[in-house]
Design a protein around this nucleic acid. Structure first.
Length: 519
DNA sequence: CACCCGGAAGCTCT
DNA sequence: GAGAGCTTCCGGGT
């Protein structure tokens, strides 16, 4: 394996920051998310003088010095540069469809997976750049996206999936307190391709000042807490809202918070049963339908439906405390923790004042394009009317709208629907107005009238108006389930990378907490 | 009261 | 600049 120091330009500072650290660079990030503390027993105080300054000068000019702000293109540029600079094997760019923030969050092993033989080098380079940028940040005035704080929390970096996996000794503790580390928030904020949105409007915040109900709750819990979560400011969000997501103890005394014990079920390792379920999942993981070389747009979790799909299809079912399938075959799911889910969505989109009310409005927009429908009579229950394949093969909503014309679906789709109707006797009368099936591979028979909601309350597990024609027999390789513990970027090709990692951690922390979700 | 609905306006991003 | 996809707010219904 190539070692960065050997290939880097002479960097005097290397002796100040040996690459063979007693702990991994990732650990460094975890320990010092804000950069190195002023001084440590083993480390002299950081100075603005960058230890990688020389190294950085070799970076392409187009690249910002802080890799966390790189766009995807920048990441590509960087990788190409690394190939040349360090004589590394060719990178599969499909494995790096992520922005700078995301790639910085990848661990060495993550990187090694993506680029065998070069992971270490890449990791070291990135860590150096990050560290340097952090050092610089500490010396600069705060910016909107990097709120400064004097808090240097010696907590692990919450965003690493590996950390989340519980490998870090502090893993069980940070969730209680340290997500609010400003720099972590910063990381989260930047985890999106979206730049930090303007601060949540005072309006929206004051409009529904409830706090998270902190009962991310078990799947069996009420799931109807539904209290909107608004935060009075970003910090409070980080301090409270996240805990809310984590379902940790010490919930705020939200009147509406339900009394269900906040703890989550024990870690749900992918049981055989679960894997079977997943294996029969007709709503195949996005990745399957979305090879990197297709021209299809990679929504990458930026779209709500995609986000939901990814939570639902998480290989290890870590998000069932927020959202869970009620009937995977039919696409019926329940938002178990509306507030928590909204919070996650808010994190994903950098809309910190997101609440269930707003998120549900977005969901309702999906009605008109037949992506979703409400399961009548069931609170927080919705039904996907299209699978990811369909959704992603349809370039945009206008196309969807055209396609979903209730009176006249596209001919090919009509044919398909007719075939499906022959296969499936719809128990309901709407079967003549099936939405279109765009993806034969996972064709669904959907009985829905865009303008006429089903009158019959859908049965929990037997949704009435959507069925899968071909329960796909997916081989494990078809699914992105091979790495059930890894929600790292690209593997799931979905959640904003930081969000995925964050969610992993959040859930993990929850799992580590007391379990008392019986209701 | 919470949930649900959908109109309207506005915003961010592509 | 236009359009998509929300986000935010709201009034109203259940």
């Amino acid at each position: 394996m190539k070692l960065l120091p050997l290939t880097l330009p002479p960097v005097g500072a290397m002796d100040r920051l040996p690459l063979s650290l007693p702990f991994s660079p990732t650990d460094l990030l975890w320990r010092y998310p804000l950069g190195f503390p002023a001084a440590t027993p083993t480390q002299p105080a950081s100075t603005p003088a960058s230890p990688v300054l020389d190294f950085k000068t070799h970076l392409p000019n187009s690249l910002a010095s802080d890799p966390r702000v790189w766009s995807r293109e920048d990441v590509t540029t960087f990788l190409r540069w690394c190939e040349r600079e360090f004589d590394l094997p060719h990178f599969e760019m499909e494995m790096f469809q992520m922005n700078g923030k995301a790639i910085c969050l990848l661990t060495k092993s993550d990187l090694a997976e993506r680029c065998p033989g070069a992971g270490d080098v890449l990791h070291n380079v990135l860590q150096l750049l990050v560290r340097d940028a952090q050092t610089l940040q500490r010396c600069l005035p705060s910016s909107p996206v990097t709120p400064t704080s004097t808090r240097h929390l010696p907590y692990p970096h919450p965003l690493s999936p590996h950390h989340v996996a519980g490998s870090h000794p502090n893993a069980s503790t940070w969730g209680l307190v340290d997500f609010q580390a400003p720099n972590l928030a910063h990381l989260v904020h930047q985890g999106n391709s979206v730049t930090l949105s303007p601060a949540p409007s005072v309006d929206s915040q004051s409009g529904s000042p409830q706090h998270a109900d902190h009962n991310a709750g078990s799947y069996h819990s009420s799931g109807s807490n539904g209290s909107n979560q608004s935060d009075t400011d970003e910090e409070s969000y980080q301090e409270n809202g996240t805990n809310g997501l984590q379902g940790h103890s010490s919930p705020p005394s939200t009147p509406g918070a339900n009394a269900v014990a906040p703890a989550l079920p024990q870690p749900q390792s992918p049981s055989k049963e679960q894997m079977n379920v997943l294996g029969n999942n007709n709503f195949r993981p996005v990745r399957d339908f979305f090879p990197s070389d297709t021209p299809e747009p990679n929504t990458n979790g930026r779209l709500l439906w995609d986000f939901l799909q990814q939570l639902l299809n998480d290989p290890t079912q870590r998000y069932t405390n927020y959202i869970a399938w009620k009937n995977r075959e039919t696409g019926v799911f329940k938002i178990v923790d509306p507030a928590g889910l909204a919070k996650l969505w808010g994190i994903q989109k950098n809309h910190l004042s997101m609440n269930y009310d707003k998120m549900s409005r977005a969901l309702r927009y999906y009605y008109r394009v037949n992506i979703l429908r409400k399961v009548q009579g069931e609170r927080h229950c919705y039904q996907f009317l299209r699978n990811p394949s369909e959704l992603k093969s349809i370039k945009n909503m206008s196309l969807l709208r055209q396609q979903m014309s209730p009176t006249r679906p596209p001919a090919s789709l009509q044919q398909q629907q007719q075939q499906q109707q022959q296969h499936i006797q719809a128990p309901h009368h709407q079967s003549s107005t099936l939405p279109q099936i765009a993806h034969p591979a996972a064709a669904m028979s959907i009985k829905i009238e865009p303008k006429v909601e089903s009158e019959s309350p859908a049965d929990d597990d037997v949704p009435t108006d959507l069925s899968m024609e071909h329960p796909t027999n997916l081989s494990p390789t078809d699914l992105s389930m091979e790495h059930p513990t890894d929600l790292s970027p690209t593997r799931h090709s979905g959640l904003t990378d930081c969000t995925a990692a964050l969610l992993c951690h959040v859930v993990k922390v929850n799992e580590g907490s007391e379990v008392s979700d019986e209701k």
